[in-house]
Design a protein around this nucleic acid. Sequence first.
DNA 1: TATGAATGAGGATTCATTCAT
DNA 2: CATGAATGAATCCTCATTCAT
Lengths: 195, 195, 195, 195
Amino acid sequence: MTPTPERRRELLATAAEVFAAQGYNATTVRRIADEAGMLAGSLYYHFDSKESMIDEILSTFLDELWQGYDEVLAAGLGPRETIEALVTESFREIDRHRPAVAIYQKESKHLATQPRFAYLADSQTTFEKAWLGTLERGVTEGVFRDDLDIRLTYRFVRDTVWVAASWYRPGGHHGPEEIARQYLSMVLDGIALRT
Amino acid sequence: MTPTPERRRELLATAAEVFAAQGYNATTVRRIADEAGMLAGSLYYHFDSKESMIDEILSTFLDELWQGYDEVLAAGLGPRETIEALVTESFREIDRHRPAVAIYQKESKHLATQPRFAYLADSQTTFEKAWLGTLERGVTEGVFRDDLDIRLTYRFVRDTVWVAASWYRPGGHHGPEEIARQYLSMVLDGIALRT
Amino acid sequence: MTPTPERRRELLATAAEVFAAQGYNATTVRRIADEAGMLAGSLYYHFDSKESMIDEILSTFLDELWQGYDEVLAAGLGPRETIEALVTESFREIDRHRPAVAIYQKESKHLATQPRFAYLADSQTTFEKAWLGTLERGVTEGVFRDDLDIRLTYRFVRDTVWVAASWYRPGGHHGPEEIARQYLSMVLDGIALRT
Amino acid sequence: MTPTPERRRELLATAAEVFAAQGYNATTVRRIADEAGMLAGSLYYHFDSKESMIDEILSTFLDELWQGYDEVLAAGLGPRETIEALVTESFREIDRHRPAVAIYQKESKHLATQPRFAYLADSQTTFEKAWLGTLERGVTEGVFRDDLDIRLTYRFVRDTVWVAASWYRPGGHHGPEEIARQYLSMVLDGIALRT
DNA sequence: TATGAATGAGGATTCATTCAT
DNA sequence: CATGAATGAATCCTCATTCAT
């Protein structure tokens, strides 16, 4: 018998994988139970509800994400270095929590309307403040271009990074650091050859 | 009373809006009917099934998209100009078919496994060929950088463009052409200030 | 434009054909309308309801059947000749009203429970009285065997005749009179060779 | 609590009773559930669909029928004795599986068109081969009359036997063997008194 | 911890029927 | 006479959840 918290984590990993692959709504509790080698009803010994599963998946992920982000933001780096560190950290999270990230991308918008998932909206807000603030600081300090709509830039960088969760496969060609490096190179310097 | 094909289009527009907002699975037929001011069963006078609604929405969108793309690809432009034209055309499609694009983003992966939606996979393949091919030509001809993983670059550009459908609102601050211009500027030249 | 009563009869013939082929419940009004080259709603110009269609089909058939039977029963024939005449008349009805007979076989039992179709039960009762009475008379008069359960004999003869509607095709190998002849020969004399 | 396979059988018996009484199409899943003392949805824990219920009912019946028939056919009896044994066996099956037989009579024709129920058509074919073949052998060997259309004779005997399911009630006046005896007496020797 | 069986609230779909034109 | 569009009730089926064992 595996100790309880370990089993929980395993089951959540299974659930996350299925949620990510099929979407939260389209995923049946029975499917998760099948994957875990038990019957649907048995999952309710471990979790209150299907909703509490996705809740735990997302909050665990966000907790870890913010641990990493907070460290970066507290380091007192310059805007460009901060962006570089945030992007790198993001790809590391995608590497570690790919299913959770994918779920977050697909489901957070409509989950956030429920009180239980208010923290999703909060996180989004804080997230935007951190990134957008850094970008603005970069423009002020003359390291980023000032001829672009800054909100557009923000969305551009944000989406660019996170959508990667939809195709990223851990253990693939490039590790998260190498992907981060190339992404940063594109975002910062563009893909056109300078003449 | 509007004539038949007009009514169909209206109903599909309504359905697309709801599908985009809530996700295909989470959308009930009743919700669409409510929005259209009729009863759930009445929709079945116009459409065979919920599935045939999303089918018609997606195929109509893809038909129009490829009409635009084919024109661009047939124009014999250089790689950079082709990318510029494709990006601009894409934002125009997002402007015209935002709900359809959003649905496509969220649902096409799992829909494509059904035979009925095989055309989604086909489209994806052709799409990749066109974009990736153009990028490769650009590298060969020395207009795009050659120090980047080309597949990564492809995904970067592709996602950059299409994720916009998730936040784009027609009639907003910038029109599609202006957004395309700024996106292209970022993608091609980067956001860092050149020194 | 065909005159109204003619059109009614045509439509009822179409309906009967479909009812017989698919069963009353399994037949949709739309299917009948398709077969008749009109839309489902249009049938309601001619008939009150689906139920009134089967009602008219069955009552028309029973009216004709009893016209024939009453003539036979009024003719004052002996028991054997009466049975022969009833069987022959029955096969003629099958020939003329095959769909109606088939419908009657399949549906009358559960339709008869509704007040509207009380005449089905009445007809059944009168039918049984006529046939069973004739058989009993035959036993009494020494033309039919007396070592058989008379009710069993009745069901045997009755079923033997009417089930034919399930496979009979007008215009086939044998006409109704020839089939009646052979059936009577089997029922009266058996299929075993007499030694 | 009864063990699982027992419960299945009970539920199928209930379903068969209702299907036989009301017809497959006219029977609602809810009605079956009511009769079984549960909610409609609960049936789906035991069966995939309404269709799979009738499937299991019919295939179980046919399996048993053919077990009996195969024994008879393998016994190497003469034509008359074979017919006698088949008829007797048939009435035994009606006694044991009355609802299944009734369902088979009413529904097999239109079910057989679906691939899932192809075995119904197969069974019909084999059935005809066995009975018709036996009758033909009987004519050749001089135990059955040769002045009758043999296919007509076949239908006559076949229908005569199986329609009995529509009125037969287990535990009634005569047991299946007695009914078989009288039926055979009528079929073989006729109902007319020999002079 | 897990199972087996059931619940009950929907959800997609069908279909007889209506009715203005 | 017929159409086109809609109604609304009913139907099959799904699925999160419960609970006694």
